[in-house]
């Protein structure tokens, strides 16, 4: 981990970069998996489980690569099961409780839209192993974006109830969106090395996609200038993350010497 006093190495920066990407996906995938067996319609149960499988799959691949970069003999499970909430660097956006179906969709849309622009640029990274992964995952991200966007339209421009519900979800989620574009010395390193992307480059594109979609869905775009949360990338989280990790990690940590793969 980087500190103000210690110079960040390229290896540390790349590891942190990969973990941030992976943590977002694991935590959101874990949240979405709570829908399995409880979806609003059988067909949609399958769809959310698919998105969840993709996200956890992406996280697994990223953790595997992180373990290689770290080179301390860890495996992917080490990062998922043996770190505490202060070490998780996922966005607060991803850890918030699943809420109703509208909340889940609104969050997925905001996140997938960001991932889409981010991965479109990560394709150009100067690392074949990394871009191999990125290209593969990008195809699935495009589908997540399409699926969640279509649902935003349906809920926004559906019944009065659905309109109000998803509007409320967007209002609630708004203050967690600025963090999507958070950048620090880790990103600077990665951009310099041709491994990372400058998210400020596509902020306007992302905003436009979000605004156009909400407008088409007859929804009101919340105020961009409101107070925005921060701190995720430095391990500052809502209380929800701790409970999620307690549940996710308990078995593995109770019997750390056992084989569970």
């Amino acid at each position: 981990m980087s500190t103000a006093t210690k110079e960040l190495t390229k290896q540390e920066a790349f590891l942190t970069y990969l973990l941030r990407l992976a943590d977002d996906r694991l935590i959101l995938g874990q949240r979405n998996s709570e829908w399995c067996g409880h979806g609003p319609q059988l067909e949609e149960d399958l769809a959310i489980a698919n998105i969840s499988l993709d996200l956890i799959g992406h996280a697994t691949a990223l953790y595997e690569y992180a373990a290689e970069v770290e080179d301390e003999g860890h495996d992917e499970d080490h990062f998922a099961y043996f770190r505490d909430d202060r070490e998780f660097t996922n966005l607060q956006l991803c850890e918030l409780p699943k809420g109703d179906f509208g909340f889940t969709i609104a969050r997925q849309f905001l996140f997938s839209a960001f991932s889409y622009f981010q991965y479109e640029r990560l394709k150009e990274a100067q690392d074949e192993q990394f871009t191999g992964m990125v290209n593969k995952h990008l195809k699935e991200i495009k589908y997540h974006l399409r699926h969640s966007r279509e649902w935003v339209l349906r809920l926004g421009d559906g019944t009065e109830e659905s309109h109000n519900r998803i509007q409320e979800s967007f209002d609630e989620l708004w203050m967690y969106t600025d963090e999507l574009f958070y950048m620090d010395e880790v990103d600077e390193w990665m951009i310099k090395e041709g491994l990372g992307v400058d998210s400020s480059e596509f902020k306007d594109e992302w905003k436009k996609l979000v605004e156009d979609t909400l407008t088409e869905a007859t929804l009101t775009v919340p105020d961009w200038d409101q107070f925005m949360m921060s701190g995720s990338r430095k391990g500052i989280h809502t209380e929800h993350l701790g409970h999620m990790l307690a549940q996710m990690q308990f078995l593995r940590r109770s019997y750390p010497d056992a084989e569970w793969k």
Binding site: I56, D77, Q247
Partner: peptide, 15 residues
């Protein structure tokens, strides 16, 4: 699903 003891087992169970 949420408590599966490894990422592999989580994916298997969810699928």
């Amino acid at each position: 699903i949420e408590r599966a003891p490894s990422l592999k087992r989580k994916l298997v169970l969810l699928a």
